[in-house]
Amino acid sequence: MQSCDQNQPCRLLVVDDESIVGKRLRQVFSKMGFEIETFVDGAPAMAAMIEKPFDVVVTDLKMADMDGMEVLRQVRLLYPTTRVIIITGYADEATAEKARQLGVFEFLAKPFRLDTLKDMVFRALEAKRQDDLQG
């Protein structure tokens, strides 16, 4: 089991309007001991976040109601130690720059390999752990 604070399982939030992404990441990360929730829209994902915060958020950029940029903005505002990874099929330089200003942890271009994402999630967890120790 991937444990975070007080030996609780690490919490991972996945927001992507491609439902297959949620389904597959659930299969992979729950097997690794993560507590994972998946959504195809930003708004219910934020509701779940407020109910019980997540350690790492993986979000797509382009979604129908609330896009990934807005998810990033709200998460960074509400939970500054939570790390946000953006996955996207295409992003121009202006979008990437804006995401960096909002404090994105990493930008991951689709299609990506599972290992890359896993590695990124572990690094995000480590970064958060450092923050929590200092805080």
């Binding site: 491609e18 297959i20 992404v21 597959r24 990441l25 299969q27 992979v28 097997k31 382009k62 996955i87 996207t88 099929g89 295409y90 121009d92 271009a109 689709k110 299609p111 990506f112 390999r113 599972l114």
Partner: peptide, 25 residues
């Protein structure tokens, strides 16, 4: 280009993910 990238990368990504999970598990 942006549109094509987005529209093709998404299904490609889904195929990658699904295939990798199949291979692993």
């Amino acid at each position: 280009t942006a549109g094509i990238a987005h529209e093709i990368n998404n299904p490609l990504n889904n195929i990658y993910l699904t295939t990798e999970v199949l291979l692993e598990d």
